[in-house]
Each structure stands twice: as C-alpha cells, then as structure tokens.
Design a protein around this nucleic acid. Structure first.
Length: 183
DNA sequence: TGCACGATGAAC
DNA sequence: TTCATCGTGCAC
C-alpha cells in the first residue's frame, strides 16, 4: 500500500479533493481491514468559505479543521450520522475535503453512497476525530493500479444557506461511477 | 441552562 | 415533503 504522505494533504484543497478520487480509504478495526475506493468528495476552502464549518470560527468542534493537514475531522450530523473530512493545507488554514461516497473494495457491508452511509459502512465515528491519517489503522493510500477517469464538477450538497458559496462547483466525482450519492 | 439547527437518509 | 435524533454554539 502506498500510503499518502503528509505533503499530499498540505496543498491546495481543490487539488487534494480531485486527487483523492480513486484513492483507497482504509480502516483497520480489531484486525479487520475495511477498504473503500473514494469516488465522490467535496472541498471546503476555509473560514472565508461560508459553507465550511470553520467559517464560524475556531470552536471545540472545528479546532481539528484549524490543525495540521492529514488528520480526520469527524463530526455527528442530524444526531444520527457521522461525516468524515480530511484536513488540508497548512495549520491554521482550516480547510478540508468531505468524503461523500466510496465504492466497496473489501469488507464493506451495505451501501456507502453519501457521507453518512460512508461512515456507517467504514465503521467511522467520533472516536476517529482528529486521528492522524498517517497512522497504521486509519489512512488513505494510492491503489497499485489506477485506471483513467473523468471528473465531474457540481455544486456542493446541502449548503443552500451559504449564499454565493452554495453555487461554487466544489463537489467532485468520478464520471459514470455507479456508487456516487446522487447525479 | 435552554434551545434552534444542521456538509443526512429514508419513508411517504 | 416530513421526520428521526442529539451534540454544538450561542443566546439568555
């Protein structure tokens, strides 16, 4: 497994988001390895991005976004699902990439289309918040072989409150992939 | 200390 | 379109 190094995450958030497509998300729990191929993501650019949690400042919940790149930002949404982000860019920049859907690769039970279902299928919860993605039990890696694909750009989902930021095409997914959360 | 509100998903 | 369900953030 070619685990993505710290410098991969310490870059422009849109570039990181696009390059996360096709990579493998790996979670090893009690010796059981679950693997999903990332097929859909969203970029959250920082405190100036009104759709980003970090736009409401540094709080106990969002402090992970303000931390160093290459860490997981996991939070509870609607009291019933978890969402997982990857923190990007230099410490203090407070940007991240939301993982929205994976294609099952190994030990995935049920659908993983949508950020809530992705976390459920990968057994990701708040215990993994702030977890270092350069660890040995929770990380992202480049698969041995990667086929070519086209990337589709769309506005992000569920951020209508963000004014002009709601219309920016910051959602990216693999064209034609059957495991994306919605067209 | 109280309360409105989600970067969702499923049912109707 | 409605609802389940609860931690977070901010108003009192």
């Amino acid at each position: 497994m070619r685990k993505l190094p710290r410098p991969f995450y310490d870059r422009d958030t849109i570039a990181v988001a696009r390059e996360l497509l096709g990579k493998h998300l790996v979670h090893v729990e009690r010796g059981r390895e679950r693997v999903g191929r990332i097929v859909e993501v969203e970029a959250y650019l920082g405190p100036h991005d009104r759709a980003a949690h970090s736009s409401r400042g540094l709080t106990d919940r969002t402090k992970v976004m303000f931390g160093p790149p290459g860490h997981a930002y996991v939070y509870l949404i609607y009291g019933m699902y978890y969402c997982m982000n990857v923190v990007t860019e230099r410490e203090g920049h407070a940007s991240a990439v939301l993982l929205r859907a994976i294609e099952p690769v190994k030990n995935i039970v049920g659908r993983a289309q949508g950020p809530g279902l992705l976390c459920k299928a990968m057994h990701i919860d708040n215990r993994l918040n702030a977890h270092d993605l350069l660890s040995s039990d929770f990380y992202i890696a480049a698969p041995p072989r990667t086929e070519r694909f086209e990337i589709v750009k769309r506005p992000r989902v569920g951020v209508d409150y963000a004014g002009p930021w709601a219309k920016r095409p910051l959602r990216f997914y693999i064209k034609g992939n059957p495991f994306i959360s919605r067209p």
